[in-house]
Write a protein that binds this DNA or RNA. Structure first.
Lengths: 189, 189
DNA sequence: AAAAACATTTGCCATATGGCAAAAAACAAC
DNA sequence: GTTGTTTTTTGCCATATGGCAAATGTTTTT
């Protein structure tokens, strides 16, 4: 749980009692490769934190193709915000790409913490805002760059992810086909 | 100012006194076409709300090409969050695409309101979160679709923008060249 | 170790988009 | 209206990426 505490404290300060309270609500959970943390069509009712492993957010387009929207790796929060906050059905899947170890908070506990710990809401908002801003700034360049550039930037931005995910996921994240990505990799070496 | 009040009240409720206090800090401002609301290299110190007109967020890539990251039209907040919240230099320009009428809050006033009005912070966070989520969900499909599909989705998502912005801006938003976009439009009619 | 299942690479050709420059159209200034 | 300026369209050809199927490589199962 040290990782979670360190992560939280990067965004604000809490005393030991407050930290203990948060940790008392934290459940450890393992999610095996290819299992879902949350699913399209269901309302997301948990907030997760990845201790070990890689997850991805994906959905299916109208041609039935699977599109990877985002990768999330160690020491990051995982939550389908729109679904969680508004209690609406999610449109995406959050799937373990590798076996994952997580810390999970139920929505009930999460909201209780928000109402109990003074300053916790500010910290949470900072965390969420940063995550959203990062997401935008990581996805944006994907639109205007060519495929090779996109792949190279991906390697810079997610150095810990690149060798742990199947080519096909990566390709769908970059918006190209698996074969093209394979050719691009050949040309880079 | 009605528009601003209506917009705010969609995200939470405030009494008349609180609304008046917010409005007392609001300055009206006009920004002429092609002028900046905020600039790369400067720290953003204002929050804006567009009453009339279209703005865009853009930056320059390493080839000197101008890339449009986002369009913002009437009844939306405009703020470079990362710069505003962390007092760091912005990396993008916010530019008026048409003549714009705005309501502007200085950072000082904005923070004073946050500290004074109970519940205002919650409303602001809701607004900002929604804006960020929208941004992600609008940009994401741009990666995996072909150019024609992207243009068609743009028309659906920004019906009020499409006829008010130069083709070149739109093309750079969609990640294609102006000539390609011109050809795509021809084929659609 | 062999078989099966899965992931990646490659070949061949089709197609979409880019680059560049010229033409046409739209808009603005005088 | 004429002239000049900016924006959009078009032509020509180059190039990047896609689609599909076969080949190769890798991992898992038995």
């Amino acid at each position: 749980m040290k990782e979670l505490v360190a992560y939280i404290l990067k965004f604000g300060s809490l005393n030991q009692q407050q930290i203990d309270l948060i940790l008392s609500k934290a459940q450890e959970r393992e999610i095996k490769k290819e299992n879902y943390f949350s699913e399209a069509g269901k309302v997301s009712v948990e907030v997760g934190f990845i201790i070990d492993g890689v997850m991805r957010v994906c959905y299916y387009n109208n041609k039935g193709e699977e599109i990877t929207k985002y990768f999330i790796d160690e020491n990051n929060l995982v939550v389908d915000l729109e679904s969680f906050e508004n209690s609406i059905c999610s449109s995406a899947y959050v799937e373990a790409v590798t076996d994952c170890k997580m810390i999970v908070f139920s929505k009930k506990d999460w909201e209780e913490l928000l109402n109990t710990i003074i300053g916790w809401d500010k910290i949470v908002h900072k965390i969420i805002n940063k995550a959203l801003i990062d997401k935008v700034s990581r996805r944006s360049p994907l639109v205007s760059e060519d495929a090779t550039t996109r792949y190279l930037s991906f390697m810079e931005m997610f150095p810990n992810v690149i060798n742990r995910v199947p080519l096909s996921y990566l390709a769908s994240y970059l918006g190209i086909t698996q074969s093209s990505l394979s050719r691009i990799r050949k040309n880079i070496r």
